[in-house]
Structure formats: structure tokens, C-alpha cells
Design a protein around this nucleic acid. Structure first.
Lengths: 192, 192
DNA sequence: ACCTGAACACCGTTCAAGT
DNA sequence: ACCTGAACACCGTTCAAGT
């Protein structure tokens, strides 16, 4: 018989609270102590549910990625790629900590392969072989994550200020253009 | 009259020592205390030369970028792009901490605009306007930095292991393919 | 099985003091 | 002007103890 007393904590509760903190204060702002305080609990209570902070962050990333629909069920390979990386970009902007979490050593969950599977199927439909598809995927995911990171961080003060890129930079237009550039490149490479 | 006693510290000495530590132990491994110990000095002595750790890292990044030749003096815009981003990739691989340092908030020095100027000139020679060139530059730099970061970190254990991407992944071939894909995309976008 | 409280070994940085 | 030494306010995590 399992314990019938209400457990104050669970992996889901921890992940939800961590996601709230990340969305409010950004990526590196989440602290085991802060997270414990938000849950009304001692920091060490978290270690009954996650081995360490990295595992916890991986749990958060997994939760976010698992909720996303990268496929979309569209027909043309170009539209599948557009949908896949628009989706990835959207969840990165919704949770500004996500790209950093995925970049942190060991924090990437197995779920990161879900968009990879979708994208690689589309790239092979475009005419690339398996290795080429993987190589092209890394172009797309590197581009998408770096764009989202730049946008979430905002212009670097004193650095972008010297150029006119700062105030009126259109991140949406920049993403669309870059995505179309890469898709055009995929077509060109497939024709060789 | 300036003080004639030998100063034990200088910005250059600190930057050199920090670069050594970064090259040996990776990105986040450099600590004000470790760096001070390597210099045979107290941690607080560093604060006479740099306002804080971020400024120090910016100094290191600046030093590395300033030593690189992004231009190369080649004629065709495709070759100029190849040379520029091969150079950027090389210094990122020589100093595995560099991409992380550039991504750290506020750590990016004004020098990051040097490869940007070279690349944007090449992209405008390809037929893109100024805004398009900036957008295409972000594709190239995001791709190059993310590739170098992946390669420096190595495969994520238990994650890439489930795919055949792990052991025999050719980072050089992946970079070449991605770069050609983007250059092909630039040509395609310029023709519109 | 799950949570607490005190402690450990770290951080970056401030401050007052030395020369 | 430059460096030291002690201290402050943090970290993630270990360990022994409670229930």
C-alpha cells in the first residue's frame, strides 16, 4: 500500500514551479533555494525527486518540448520545415530560458530528437541523403536557437548601440528571411 | 614620474593567464580565485585592472578576435565568406571557451563587429541589400558558433549514443556542408 | 519514503587596511 | 596606485537526523 498522506512535492509540481521562475526571471536565475522557497519547502526536498539541478532542468526542457507539435501534418517539405522551426522558435520565446537550458552540458533531454526526426524526414523528402539531412538539420536548429537567444537577451547595450541594428531591428523578419535562405539552400544542394 | 617598481600585474598578463586557463579547462572553468592563484596574486588584485569578471572575459574575447584575419584578401564573395567563417570557427575551436564567452550577457566586445563588417561586405557583393546582409550574417554566425560549441562540448552521453551520430560524426564535413548550403541559399535569395 | 537543519566547499565582490 | 586579508552574501550539494 502506498502512503496515503498528501505528498507536498512531486516531479510535476517542481517542474511547473521551475518553469514559472524561468519564465519570470530568465534562464540562469533559477536557484535551488529560490525554487524551494516558491514551493514552500526546503532546498534538499528537491533532491528526493531529481538527482541534481541538471536533471531538474532536463525535466523542465522535456516537459516543454513534449507539449509542442513539431509535425503539423502539412504536405510540402518546405512547409514542414517552416512549421517545425516556427514551433521551436515559439516555445523558445515563450520560455526564454529554454535555449540556454538546451545548451547547458547534459541538460538536453532525449526529447530534442523529436523536432530532429520531423525535420530530417522533411529534408530527405527534399532529396538529401541521411547524412546531409543531419548536417542541414544542425544549420536549422543552430540558427533558430541562436536567433531566439539574441531576441530574448535583447541588444547588448553599448555594442549594438553603435550600429543602427539596435532599436528598430525586426527579429521576426530576420527569422523569416534566414529560414527562407536556408530552405533555398536546401533546394540548391538537393539539385546537385 | 611613474612608479618604477615592477608591477606584478597588468591587463595583458591577466588576459594571457585567463586564456591559458580557458584553453586548458574549458569555458566556465575560469574562476577569479583560480586565475589569481595562477598569477601568484590575491583575487582582489584583479579588480585593479578589470571592473568585474565580465569585463575581464570581454578583454579575453577582444584579444582573441583582434588577432584574427577575417578578410584574407580573396576576390570572390563566396571565398570571402568561406575564409571569414573558417577563421571564426578556427579561433572558436582553438579557444573552446570563446563561443560561451561571446554568448554571456555583456561579455561580447566591440570586436565582434570585425567579422560582421567583412561578411556583410561580401554579402552585399553577392547582391543582397544592407538589411538582407545583416539577416544573412546572423544565419552564418549562429551556425558557426553553434557548430563550434557542439564540437567543443562533444556528444552528450546517453543522448547521442542512441543515434549513430555519436562516434563517427564528422564535424569538419558537417561545417563544410552547412557553409555551402548557406552560400547556396545566399545565391538563391540574391537572384529573386 | 520523504522532508528538515546544519554544515561544507565553493563563488563574485565589498571594504578597510596596508605600502 | 596597487595589493592584501578578512568578510559578506550567495551557490549546489552532503550528511545525519527526524517522521
Amino acid at each position: 500500500m502506498p502512503d496515503r498522506r498528501v505528498r507536498t512535492l512531486s516531479r510535476d509540481k517542481i517542474v511547473d514551479a521551475a518553469l514559472d521562475l524561468i519564465d519570470q526571471n530568465g534562464a540562469g536565475a533559477v536557484t535551488m533555494r529560490d525554487l524551494a522557497r516558491a514551493l514552500g519547502v526546503t532546498p534538499m526536498a528537491l533532491y528526493n525527486h531529481f538527482g541534481n539541478k541538471n536533471e531538474l532542468l532536463r525535466g523542465v526542457a522535456e516537459h516543454v518540448i513534449d507539449r509542442a507539435d513539431f509535425d503539423g501534418g502539412v504536405a510540402k517539405w518546405q512547409d514542414r520545415l517552416r512549421h517545425c522551426f516556427h514551433t521551436l522558435r515559439r516555445i523558445c520565446l515563450q520560455h526564454p530560458g529554454l535555449p540556454t537550458m538546451l545548451e547547458i552540458e547534459g541538460a538536453a533531454p532525449a526529447s530534442v530528437f523529436r523536432p530532429m526526426d520531423v525535420a530530417m524526414a522533411a529534408l530527405q523528402a527534399a532529396g538529401l541523403d541521411e547524412v546531409e539531412s543531419a548536417q542541414a538539420y544542425f544549420v536549422l536548429v543552430g540558427f533558430t536557437l541562436s536567433q531566439a537567444t539574441y531576441q530574448a537577451r535583447g541588444p547588448i547595450p553599448g555594442l549594438h548601440a553603435s550600429r543602427q541594428l539596435a532599436a528598430d531591428w525586426d527579429y521576426d523578419a530576420g527569422f523569416e528571411y534566414g529560414l527562407e535562405l536556408i530552405i533555398t539552400g536546401v533546394s540548391g544542394m538537393a539539385e546537385r
